[in-house]
Design a protein around this nucleic acid. Structure first.
Lengths: 345, 345
DNA sequence: TGTTAGCACTCAGTATTCAGGAGTGCTAAC
DNA sequence: GTTAGCACTCCTGAATACTGAGTGCTAACA
C-alpha cells in the first residue's frame, strides 16, 4: 500500500486533502502550484492530478472544477500521510487541568470529557461511560422504596456509584434488606462486580434459605444493570456549522441518527483490539453517516480497557487534530480514573 | 377586548389563522372565499382583511401577497377564538395507557412524558422534574464513597429517589455514617424534605456533639440538591421539519438555545399562579425564541403544584391541539404521581 | 348601505440569456 | 520530464423578461 504512489504524488495528494479539509471546495492546480512544498507548474500538477484521478483517489464534480479527495484518499492520508498534529502546549494543559479539577463523580467526568472533546474539535463528541463490571465492590446498600421495589446502591473501589431499581418479594421490608446487604458487604467486598453473582450465590444460599429465589432475581437485576453502558453525546449541533450540512434535510437526518445514539453505542462497544480506530464515510455501516467519519479511542483504568470515546465529523475532518486530541484526552481520562482507583486502593 | 371585532371579522381572522397554521404561507382572499364558513366574495373579504391589517392583526409580506397573522392575532385567537380542540378518544387513551404502565421510577415517567408530548404534537417538549422539597422523607441512607465524600440516598413517600454527593469530614467512615442515618431515619421520617434541616438540627445537636458543624454542612448540601429541578427536553430536531427553520442559521440558533435549557427552565420554574400559560413570540423575553411560542402547564401531586411541562413550536403552532394535549398529559401525570403517593401513603 | 364584479397595478418567483472566470486536457516546444 | 499556450467546459452570478397570485380602488348593483 505504502508504495503505491511516488513521493511527488503523495505530496500533492496531501496538499489537496489539507486544502480541502480547510476550504471544503474543490482544489485546482493553480492553487496547489502556490503551495510552498510544491515547486511545480500548474500543468505538471494537472498531469499528476489526472493520474491520481485515474488511480481512484480524486474526483471531479464536473469537468471544469478542481479535484475533491474521496474515501480512498482519506484512507491513505490517515494511514500514511498525515503527521499526527501535536497539540499546542496550551491545549494539552487545558485538557489536563480541566479534567483534573472536579473528579468527584465519574458521571461528571465523562460529561466533562464529552464537552471538552466537542469544544476543542468543533465536531460532535461521544463518550461511553466506563464498564462497571470489572470494578470491585466496595459497598452495597439495599433500600426499600415501595412495597415490592427496592433501590440497590453500589459503590465501587473507583469511587463511582450505581443505582438500580429492583423488584423484591412482597413483604421484604427495610429490615430484611438491611440484613441482606450487610451479608453481601461482609462476603463480597473486594470482589469484581461481574463475579458477584456466581461468588455470592453459593455463599448466601444457606443463609437466605426460603428466599433464595428472590435473592437470585435481585442479583440478576443488578448484574443486568452492571453490564449497561451509556453514551454521552455532545455538540451534535456543531455540524450545522459546516457547509456539508447547509441542507436542512441532511442536517435533520444526521441529528436524528446521532441523537438516537444506537449506532454510536454499537461502534463504541465493539472492541476491535485496536486502541484507535478511524471509520471513514462508508466504512461506517450506517448509510446516514456516509458523509461522516468517526474516530474512536479507548480509555483505561490501570491496564484494562474500560470504555471508549469518539469524535464524529464530516469526512473532510481534521484527522490530525482529532487523533491528537483523542489520544491526549484518553490519556488524561485514563489517568484521572486510574488515580481515583489508586487513591482508594 | 372581546368585542373589538365584529363576528364576521372574527370568523375571517380565525379562518386566516387556521389556514396559516396549516400551510405556513400567506392567505389570500380567494382562498378564504372558498372556506365553507365564509359565504362572501373575495372582494368583500379583501375589505375586511384591509381593516384587520389596519387594526394590527395581519401583516403583508409584500403588496401582492396574502395576509399573515401576527402575534396580536395569535393572542386574540388563543384568548377568544380557538375552540380547544379535544383529543380523539384514541389519543386520550394512548396517553393514559402509556403513562400508566411503567411507573417504577419517577425519572422514567418524566422522560416518557416528554417523549410522548413531542411525539404527539411534533413540536419540542420540555418537562420539569417534580419538586422534591414538598415530598416527605421515607428513608435516608448515607454511604461512604471515598475518604471525604459520601452519597446520600433519599427515598420519599412518593417512591422517588434522589442521590446527592456530599463532602464529609475526614475520618468519618461507614460506621459513623450509618449511625447518623439511623438517627435521621428515626427522627425525621415523615417530615417534609424542606423542613428537615430546621427540624433536624436542634434534635441532633446534642447527639452529634463535636461534629455538629460537619453535619450542618451535609444538611446544607442535601437541602441545596432538594431544591434542584432538572428539565428534560425532547424532540428539538422536530423543528427542522417546519419551513420556518429551513434556514440552517435559524435552526442552529434555535437548537443551541433550547438545548442549553436555561430559558426553558426559567419559564417552567416561574410560577405565575395560572395553570396554563401561552407565551407567543416576543412575549418570550428571549430574542432567540421570537418566532416561537411556548405553552406551559403545571402538574400536581394531590392538590399541590410540583412541576410543569411545556411545548415549544413555531408561533404558527396548532394552539388548540397543543393546549388539549398538555391538559390531558398534565392530568394523567398528576394522577400517576398522586397514585404513587397514595399507594405509599 | 353593504356587497360584488371588474380592472389596473404590484411584486415574488421562475426561467432565460449572457458574460466572466476557474479549471481542465491536449499539444507542442523547451 | 516539464511547461507554456490554447481551446474547451461548465459553474456562477447578474440582468432581463414573463407569469401568476394577490391587492386596492372604482363603479355598479341589490
Amino acid at each position: 500500500m505504502t508504495e503505491l504512489l511516488d513521493v511527488r504524488k503523495m505530496r500533492i495528494l496531501e496538499a489537496i486533502v489539507d486544502d480541502y479539509i480547510l476550504t471544503a471546495s474543490p482544489v485546482g492546480s493553480r492553487t496547489l502550484s502556490k503551495h510552498e512544498d510544491i515547486e511545480l507548474s500548474p500543468a505538471t500538477i494537472r498531469n499528476e492530478m489526472s493520474d491520481l484521478t485515474e488511480l481512484g483517489f480524486l474526483e471531479q464534480p464536473h469537468t471544469s472544477a478542481g479535484r475533491v479527495p474521496n474515501e480512498k484518499a482519506y484512507r491513505l492520508y490517515v494511514n500514511n500521510i498525515m503527521d499526527r498534529a501535536s497539540l499546542t502546549p496550551d491545549e494539552t494543559e487545558y485538557i489536563r487541568s480541566h479534567l483534573n479539577t472536579k473528579v468527584s463523580e465519574v458521571g461528571e467526568v465523562i460529561k466533562q470529557t464529552a464537552r471538552m472533546l466537542s469544544g476543542i474539535t468543533n465536531y460532535t463528541s461521544v463518550v461511553l461511560t466506563p464498564q462497571m463490571k470489572r470494578a470491585r465492590l466496595k459497598h452495597i446498600s439495599l433500600i426499600s422504596v415501595t412495597e415490592g421495589s427496592a433501590l440497590a446502591v453500589i459503590v465501587t473501589n473507583s469511587g463511582s456509584t450505581m443505582n438500580t431499581m429492583l423488584d423484591v418479594p412482597k413483604g421484604m421490608g427495610q429490615k430484611q434488606l438491611e440484613h441482606l446487604s450487610a451479608l453481601m458487604n461482609e462476603r463480597c467486598c473486594g470482589y469484581r462486580l461481574d463475579d458477584i453473582r456466581k461468588t455470592l450465590l453459593p455463599l448466601l444460599q444457606d443463609e437466605v434459605g426460603e428466599q433464595a429465589d428472590a435473592v437470585m432475581d435481585m442479583l440478576e437485576g443488578i448484574s443486568a444493570d452492571i453490564e449497561k453502558q451509556d453514551v454521552e453525546v455532545v455538540g451534535a449541533t456543531n455540524m450545522l456549522n459546516y457547509p456539508e450540512y447547509s441542507d436542512v434535510g441532511k442536517a435533520r437526518s444526521f441529528l436524528t441518527e446521532v441523537e438516537s445514539g444506537d449506532y454510536l453505542k454499537r461502534v463504541l462497544t465493539t472492541d476491535d483490539g485496536v486502541e484507535l480506530t478511524v471509520r471513514i464515510g462508508n466504512e461506517n455501516d450506517n448509510p446516514e453517516l456516509r458523509d461522516c467519519s468517526v474516530v474512536t479511542v479507548s480509555y483505561r483504568v490501570g491496564d484494562e480497557k474500560v470504555g471508549s470515546m469518539g469524535v464524529i465529523g464530516p469526512t473532510r475532518m481534521d484527522y490530525g487534530k482529532v487523533v491528537a486530541v483523542l489520544k491526549c484526552m484518553s490519556e488524561s481520562l485514563s489517568n484521572v480514573l486510574s488515580g481515583l482507583l489508586d487513591s482508594n486502593k
